[in-house]
Amino acid sequence: MIINAVQIPAVVFQLTQLLLVVLAAPLLTGWVNQCQAWLQNRSGAGVLQPYRVLHKLFLKDAVIAYNASWLFRVTPYVVFGCMWLAATIIPIIAVDLPFSRAADVIALVGVFALARMFGALAAMDIGTAFGTMGARREMMVSFLAEPALLMVLFTASMLSHSTQLPYIVSAFSRHQFMLYPSLAFAALAFLIVLLAENARIPVDNPNTHLELTMIHEAMILEYSARHLALIEWASSLKLFAYFSIGIALFLPYGIAEVGHWSALPLSILLLLFKLALAGVGLALFEALSAKMRIFRAPEFLGTAFLLAVLGLLIHFLLSA
């Protein structure tokens, strides 16, 4: 493949995003945790704490269960790779990303599903009670969240007549300001899916260990050292990816258009600003809500599906 003059900006954009997401993802997690600490009147560990944790974990020796199969060893790398790919192909700093053509929104949901499947299988691989329980709960939550997520993405696709994320984003950012009721419904549904998929408070508590209510933490109990580091990092990347999808669909202003070199610094600054804002919003939401019983989770996620379907129906009725 010959890289000609037109494509060079695209490649630079892609490389920038590739590095940006993987380096900034722990920062985002740290920022959310720090905001939470402030809201709870604690001083907090600082926004750099996730980097310290990753550093510590990478230096340790890995302990692997006696009966672990290759699946258990390979899963952290698969999960990390999937999340990195997902966060890389979502257009957040520029529309013109070469990797974006690799997967449209449906394939993106598939990438998330692949990571989830490996995570659940690895949790069951060891055969501990906690791992199996966590895997089953994770599958229950995600099989309810996934259709809602697809419906949200379909609403955006209907409005922009494409399932390719770059087209969706450029269609939305080029529009003059319009109130889309369908998109508002989709945004609400997406918020619920984001909370459920990232093991956030109303559905799961990310800070819990050794409790009977945990979902995500129960799945990764057996991991240690570099494997655990990769999984933690992948969780940060997943949160980053979901925030990016939200920004790309609902707040696409300021993303660099095709071939615009000069827009890159501004778009990165805007992205950081939006992410910081979204992090504050997430921390605030978590501070204000209580964790619900696990049997309430289907109802909560059913609401997300309902909202997304309503958005789609309203799009058909009002074509708006």
Partner: peptide
Amino acid sequence: QIVNLLASLLLLIVF
């Protein structure tokens, strides 16, 4: 657009 948005809100409230 505003009326459409309010109508959708009305539907949401009934739900």
